[in-house]
Design a protein around this nucleic acid. Structure first.
Lengths: 338, 338
DNA sequence: CTGTTAGCGCCTTCAG
DNA sequence: CTGAAGGCGCTAACAG
């Protein structure tokens, strides 16, 4: 049978209110009475019904994350972020509610469900679009949230890494290795981080006196397969690139496979680089040169910020921009060229 | 402002009851009335307050998982399981609530909180003990749950892999490679799977006419560090083992490091094997020979079973036992010995 | 210090 | 076909 305040009230002969206050630790309860109530509660194994408490008190000690598609559950990048968020939520005594987009459901509606359903106090949003309706929605709903990434409108708290600087460093590294024909596998243009990475690519080229060429640009969808396809298109031209920079690691890994299946050797015949430094990249063959985003730590810090927003404390910093780090491994040919 | 049934009721001039029924799709509502109500609800962006609904209806379309310690968020094994569970939960339209053990909190209490707080319809339990109070608790509470693993008492639905067969296969492989002095790094004895893996180890040895020796047994805590320490102890004796089998991959990876730091080469001087086949194992140096548990798929299937329990449908199979698969890589010396 | 009253938003009898 | 009433379990005034 369910143990409620009523049960304890009957057992103790005190009113429900008094029981409630005693258990909540209010100081306007006689010490003896409290002792008695607490011991009965423990004996009966009382656990408050959180659904009721939430209905009443409007906050839930729970933060939410939406998983855009069920397939994201297998995405190493997302899992890293999730670990960080979950880890830090635990630190604050918050639970983490994961809601995946239902089949056939509009993604925005997943957000509506989460927010309006009064089940969470705040949420973490990741992999946003340039014009992201989810953010517009959350702003309008005045619901606490924190974003990993920046979009066009920046009047909300976010944490991000400087993709422009990251990609510039990649291209600089490649030009220093002697490359002049450097291709780019772009992430989808509607994603917010794409323009920064593209800008960094262009800046890196120009810094070396190279003008970007349309023919060295391909688009992917972030998946390894799309990187594979994009690399094949890039290689299939009369003057193919000698280096391929991808906007994320998954596409770079796909591109490496494509290069290898064309009979070329990554790191010797052609350089390939990524962005993210997801765990598999260090172990790829050859190990992938990439830009490290400390995704796990970002998750933790994002949660720190979210808690501040929820508590309506002023944010230490409402816009956090982290500098990424270039990680040079063999896929860019370190040990072979000079 | 919050849109509730009341808002719609006032807007439409109909009672809350009628609005509720119209939106729930009851057929005792005039078609015109329903149309009107539905269109108002859509216009206002009505979302039911789930806390209220749960309080009333006792089910939540949410399943729970407890993360025993915050550090488990970084455990690849756990993340794999989580992905599978989350993925499949999404398939059924369920959300996933992750609750981490609070600092200083008894683990059992984390379960109490989850179950008695009426926030979830069922839960997935993993990495259980031989005598697991959590299971006792869930059984007594008659709360739907499904276990990954088997304990002494098996009167509950579970899914597991045959650890005995898995470890037997490992030892057989090692004896076939010519090893006679095969050590075992045990997982903690209180864990349910430990005895099965130990039994498989003994069986494998005996099948090759070898009697297990106490001196080739060490205990770890599942972490890489503990595997490192255990391996050092095993190697530091007059007749050290020529092969080390670990009860999980993390410890095996730690053991490999210990071997290497002793100036020996894994796969040539000494064989090391693991259990789980977590993603990093394929990329370890050298790649780790191990036993594959299809953890992601197990997560998915566990959730299928849980849903059946929640719906009180008879389970197709209440005890699922999967056969694990030996994955031979270089850490056991495949290409070097014969 | 304790109890009464009044909802939070929803759903479900039970009457019309 | 529609509405009124009651209650899920909890907390927060407001009285005594």
């Amino acid at each position: 049978m369910k143990i409620t305040l009523k049960t304890i009230s009957e057992e103790s002969g005190l009113s429900i209110t008094t029981v409630s206050r005693a258990l909540a630790g209010y100081d306007d309860v006689n010490e003896e009475t409290r002792q008695k109530i607490v011991s009965i509660a423990e004996r009966l194994g009382y656990q408050p019904n959180l659904a009721a408490r939430h209905l009443r008190s409007k906050h839930t000690q729970t933060v939410g994350m939406v998983i855009p598609l069920t397939s994201y559950f297998s995405d190493p990048f997302f899992m890293e972020l999730l670990s960080g968020v979950g880890r830090q939520a635990a630190e604050y005594g918050y639970d983490l509610l994961l809601s995946a987009q239902q089949p056939g459901e509009d993604e925005l509606n997943t957000y509506r469900r989460m927010v309006a359903s009064s089940r969470i106090d705040g949420m973490v949003v990741a992999r946003i679009l340039k014009e992201d309706p989810r953010i517009t929605f959350l702003k309008e709903a005045r619901h606490p949230f924190i974003v990993f990434g920046r979009s066009n409108a920046n009047d909300y708290p976010y944490i991000d890494v400087d993709g422009e600087a990251g990609m510039r460093a990649v291209v600089q590294h490649l030009t220093e290795m002697g490359h002049r024909r450097i291709a780019l596998i772009l992430s989808p243009r509607e994603l917010a981080f794409t323009s920064a990475r593209y800008a960094g690519y262009v800046q890196g080229l120009r810094a070396a006196g190279i003008e970007p060429e349309e023919t060295y640009l391909a688009e992917g969808t972030l998946s390894a397969d799309s990187g594979h396809a994009a690399a094949l298109r890039l290689l299939d031209q009369t003057t193919p690139p000698t280096a391929i920079a991808a906007c994320n690691d998954m596409m770079a890994i796909g591109a490496m496979q494509a290069v290898q299946s064309s009979g070329l050797e990554v790191g010797r015949d052609i350089a390939v680089t990524g962005f993210d430094d997801i765990p598999p990249s260090a172990h790829a063959h050859p190990p992938l040169t990439t830009v490290r985003q400390p995704t796990y730590l970002i998750g933790r810090q994002a949660l720190d910020m979210l808690i501040q927003v929820i508590r309506q404390e002023p944010l230490d910093q409402s816009h956090v921009l982290l500098m990424p780090e270039l990680v040079i491994r063999e896929s860019s040919g370190t040990n072979r060229r000079r």
